[in-house]
Nucleic acid binder design. Structure first.
Lengths: 234, 234
DNA sequence: GAGTGGTCTAGACCACGGT
DNA sequence: CCGTGGTCTAGACCACTCA
């Protein structure tokens, strides 16, 4: 029946075992055979089975414990790989022309909430930036960003006409880690004017704070145009 | 300096190489040494280096091609593992009591948009369900769900007082795959009344369509209460 | 204490994809 | 063609955890 799956690759064995799980060969929460058993069944090395089962564990299909064996997860882990879109790429993928306009750029004291999200002391001076992202000349997203000049002093003089602040930072501080959150926000007067939507419109919003090696880099709040959706697979 | 990382585990080697990349030992987009080289450097088997580099590739730090070698990704892949919350668990994690109330339950013809998302023919009859999820008795999220009785006939008679439709379906059809999307929606009159928010409030919204083996199972649209955030790490 | 997964090794062959 | 990553194997030892 199954044509696509190879016999003794970790790939093929993973899919074979997955099919057996999905088909209901074992109850939810039930112990499935050990690595040695599967190795015998499929006439391969235990290592190969190990790789297959580890992959299924990463997917959240099974749960593994030393001595405890491998069991089908009582309820599969609801998780998905979310690819965070880069605005330029997103716009261009729709076949539209990307552009951006810097509405404001100044040094200012971090507002309390921002300082908190960046884990900075109060009264820390940051660079504040407001950018409107455009698709075919129409507002696509509005971004408020705070950059920590203590971490990225070169940002002050950066030329942001060719590339956006986001891309500039990714290139300059490539391997920063961060926290993000998604929410829905009502357009206030400023947002409504910038995005050319009615005041009070529901805007999909992405916030992100990033650090490089314990040093706060930036905090950004990105409001997408009305009707935006972020799609992904489960 | 580094105390936590072991010398010749794939784990330790992964972190050692990651540190060298982050430290800027190689340019963005530049080729890094081959597996054999690293194996010599760290005095371990090539297999071990292979596992370490594959992990970095999954993370989006490096890019690997046969014959082409391994190179630092020009721009690191912006991706994150998103754990989709289960409402009951989410509420209980806040230390509140979860409950839910079924507002409506009926058979009806799938609205055009729903039929499309479920990839069903027009005029397909579905079970339509409206559920209000409560935290400590207060509205937490409002859910509209359509279930395909052709795929899950037992759903018609399911007792949904003890467990929610979501949990019932996960238990009955555990390994379904799906598509999801996140967006921001303005509360209409019905939503405003159900969630006890002002009309027009911005609501964080999660839509999900799931299939089991090419058979459409369910489509659901979940509107969270005003101010809800979905957090994750990058 | 004993069983299970976690990992390392050394060697081998294969598959893809630049030259 | 030929170098690089992708993978398999057989055997070994270790680490966690349950009884």
């Amino acid at each position: 029946m199954n044509v696509a799956t190879q016999a003794t690759t970790h790939h093929g064995i993973r899919e074979a075992i997955r099919a057996r799980i999905v088909a209901g060969e074992w109850e939810l929460g039930e112990l499935i055979p050990g690595e040695a058993d599967f190795a015998a069944q499929y006439a391969c090395a235990r290592t190969t089975v190990n790789r297959a089962l580890q992959a299924l564990a990463r997917e959240g299909i099974v749960e593994r414990k030393r001595k405890g064996g491998t069991r089908v997860r009582p309820l599969p882990l609801p998780q998905a790989l979310l690819r965070i879109p880069i605005i330029r790429a997103e716009v261009e993928a729709m076949g539209q022309t990307y552009d951006h306009r810097i509405m404001r750029r100044e040094r200012s004291i971090a507002p309390g909430e921002v300082a908190k999200r960046m884990q900075l002391a109060q009264n820390h001076e940051l660079i504040h930036l407001e950018t409107l992202h455009l698709a075919d000349g129409h507002p696509f997203a509005f971004e408020r960003r705070w950059v920590n000049p203590a971490t990225v002093p070169e940002f002050e003089g950066a030329d942001l006409t060719a590339i956006s602040a986001n891309e500039w930072l990714i290139r300059t501080v490539p391997f920063s880690r961060g926290e993000a959150s998604l929410s829905a926000v009502s357009a206030d007067a400023d947002l409504a004017r910038a995005l050319e939507v009615a005041q009070g419109a529901a805007l999909f919003t992405l916030e992100r704070a990033t650090w490089f090696d314990a040093q706060s880099v930036t905090f950004t709040r990105l409001h997408y145009h009305q009707g935006y959706r972020l799609n992904f697979e489960l």
